[in-house]
Every structure is written in structure tokens, then in C-alpha cells.
Amino acid sequence: MRVLVTGGAGYIGSTVASACLDAGIEPVVLDSLVTGRREFAEGRVFYEGDISDGPLIDKIFGENPDIDAVVHCAALIVVPDSVADPIGYYRANVTKSLEFVDHLLRNGCTRMIFSSSASIYRAGDDHTVDEQSPLDPQSPYARTKAVCEGMFADIAAGHPIKILSLRYFNPIGADPEMRTGLQLRRPSHALGKMIEAYEDGVPFQITGTDYPTRDGSGIRDYVHVWDLAAAHVAALRRFDALEAGVINLGTGAGTTVRELAEAFNRVVDRPIELVEAPPRPGDVAGAYTRSDLARRLLDWRPRHSIEDGIRHSLEWARIRESRLA
């Protein structure tokens, strides 16, 4: 099997590509390198360019006519940035995805897995969601994912293409073999900020402390990126038999930011200090999945703990500069 991975030189896309390789699936990587890293595509079939570039997509399929499916990971993903630049986010995530699917149809590609997000849900009072929960995205980034899902459903209803949306919760960790990890030196999510605070010897800011959670901090479903990648391999293997159009990928356990910090301090040799701060633009209380659909349909369940994710993130942070030119 050969699979086109868009955004395949980014954090999640490169990890999916590694998992595919380990499973005997050959990834073909497409990445504009706006946020991705060329180093993450080394030793893989790689095309540098944009998903909306029709002639490039035609070239990829012309040179790789045996591509069986696409994993579409290419997107901008930083919530505060989407608040500051909604036009840029809609253009990158929605407009270009529409053009991309049109190019896929022209080239006879009939299978696509879409990297979606659990940020599109409206969480219940208990902060849990399943695939049938109402949608209520609270940031431009989240709305781009919701718009794409609706757009893809309409396209799949009228054209010979099947599209599966995998709604990620909160990826942490790195490839356990340290082939790839977070490419950003200063990532904006909670664990990245904890590592930054640890490295710099400064307090970690808990942004938002008045949410209706058990300790006032935001709650998330932290899932190891290698487990996410394994779910993509399982979805590719079972794609034609799947009837669901949406599957949640999470651990099924909610962890607050304070609890994540406590887990972080159990792993490191020098605990970080915690201070409270206001929420960032676009931040929400959060949610975690109560669904077991991924287990039933994909025979998938997370294998790595939060502590594993923290350890692998710290290990990657120590070697990142030596891996990235």
C-alpha cells in the first residue's frame, strides 16, 4: 500500500508517515514546509509544495499511480494565531482543502482520512463528548475544521470519494524512536509551555483558572502522538469496511492542566513552579471523549500513558536542535 500524507513533514504527519513505514505502508510526503521540516521527510518520497497546486498534485499521482489513499494532515493549528489571522486560517485550512479534494477527484483518488479536531465539539456539563455530540467550535481554527468536515461530507455525497474524519483530542509526546517530534522551539500548548518553563527555570502559567472543572483549570484528553499514528494505520487497513464517517481519537480520560503539571513534576528532576494567569484568546474549558468507537471499529486503544508522553516530549526537546538544521 502507498499513501499520500499531506503535511507529512509536520509533527503529526511525519509521525503518521513513520508509523506507516513501520507497518509496511509506503508514505509519499507532500509539505509546503511553512511549518514542516525538511529533515522529517528524509529518506521518504517527498514533494515540496502546496496542497492547492493542481499541477503538482497531478505530478504526484502521475509519478505514483499506485497511491491507494490520502491522509490529509496539512493545516495551520495554533488557536491564538487563528484569532489574530482568521482570513489566513480559512484560506489555508478551508479554501486550499477544497482545491485539494478537487485535484484528488480529478486523479481518481477515492479514499481520504482527514485530520480533524475535537475542538469542534460542544462539551456537556461533564466535559465528555462522543461522535454524536453537538458541534460548537469556539475559535477560527476550530471552525475551519468544522467547515471542512461539512464540506467533505457534501463532496462525498455527490462524488466517488469516501472521507473519514479522525477527530484528535490533544496530542503529546514524540516518536518513541525519536525520528520526529514537535518541530517548534516554543510550542503554544500546555505541555510545550511546561517544558519551556522547565528549561528556562521560570514558573509555568496556568492560563484560565475559573473553568467549571474539578480544579478550575482547563481539561483535556492527552493522547500520545504515536498512538494517534497507530490509529491512522488501523484506519487505512480497515478503510473500505468502515461505515462511520467520524471517529474520536482520545484516551477517554480527562486530565486538567493542573493534573498535567503534577504529572510533569513527577517525571522531571526539578519541579516547575505554577502560577495562575488569564485564559488566552480562543481558549475553552475543554473536553474528553467517552466514545469507544475507535476500539470497536479500528481495534485501537492508547498504549502510552501521560507520563510516557511527557518523557518522550522531554527526550525530544533535548535532541531537537541537533536533529533540525
Rank of each mutant, 00 (worst) to 15 (best):
Gly108Thr: 06
Val223Lys: 06
Ala287His: 00
Cys148Phe: 14
Leu21Tyr: 01
Tyr11Gly: 10
Ser115Arg: 03
Gly36Trp: 11
Ser119His: 06
Leu293Phe: 05
Leu21Glu: 14
Phe152Glu: 04
Arg303Cys: 11
Val275Gly: 03
Glu42Gly: 01
Gln132Thr: 15
Val101Gly: 05
Val147Leu: 13
Ala325Tyr: 09
Ile77Ala: 14
Met112Tyr: 04
Pro176Asn: 14
Asp269Ile: 01
Asp227Glu: 00
Ile12Lys: 03
Ile272Met: 02
Ile163Cys: 04
Thr209Ser: 14
Ile67Thr: 04
Glu149Asp: 14
Ser116Tyr: 02
Ile172Gly: 00
Ile161Met: 01
Asp292Met: 05
Arg303His: 13
Leu260His: 01
Gln138Cys: 14
Gly24Ala: 04
Asn170Phe: 08
Leu182Phe: 07
Arg214Gly: 08
Ala17Cys: 08
Arg214Thr: 13
His312Met: 06
Pro140Lys: 13
His189Ala: 12
Val275Glu: 15
Val202Asn: 02
Arg122Met: 11
Phe239Trp: 09
Ala261Gln: 08
Asp81Thr: 09
Asp221Gln: 00
Tyr288Val: 01
Gly309Val: 10
Ser97Met: 01
Arg311Val: 15
Val3Trp: 03
Gln183Cys: 10
Gln138Asn: 12
Lys193Ala: 12
Pro278Cys: 14
Tyr168Glu: 06
Val71Glu: 12
Val79Arg: 11
Ser82Met: 05
Met112Gly: 08
Ser82Tyr: 04
Gln132Arg: 12
Leu4Cys: 07
Tyr288Gly: 01
Arg280Ile: 02
Val267Met: 04
Leu324Asn: 06
